[in-house]
């Protein structure tokens, strides 16, 4: 598998990272270098292996349904680059 320029552009868009046109080609080369090296994983027989998703051999703990958090709007918006009246603000979204 090899990434071309268009794929890099698509992936960059998915990741919402602006990549200049001139940087697409070198970026594709860099990513291909890494992905080419990763290809060796294909050598491992994983036919009957369950994918590992957690190292802890334990069960998910459940929380009691109680209101124990929230109610501090000032703390929530304190670091916001833009906002008003307790809201965050973003460039207008037209639907």
């Amino acid at each position: 598998m090899s990434l071309d320029k268009a794929t890099v552009a698509k992936v960059a868009n998915l990741a919402r990272i602006k990549v200049e046109e001139k940087d697409l080609e070198p970026m594709a080369a860099e990513l291909n270098n890494i992905l080419g090296w990763v290809e060796q994983l294909g050598e491992v027989d994983t036919a009957d292996v369950e994918p590992m998703t957690s190292v802890a051999e334990m069960r998910l703990r459940w929380r009691a349904d109680e209101v124990t958090d929230g109610g501090y709007v000032e703390d929530i918006v304190a670091n916001a680059p833009s906002g008003e009246d307790g809201y965050f603000a973003v460039p207008k979204v037209i639907e």
Binding site: M1, L14, A15, I17, T53
Partner: peptide
Amino acid sequence: KRRLLIGTYALSAGYYDAYYLKAQKVRAR
């Protein structure tokens, strides 16, 4: 950025099984 792009690619449709899932299985090994 490099890692975010690699990671995004590894999870994207059509590549998830070949990269992410495979890596998690190798991890289990």
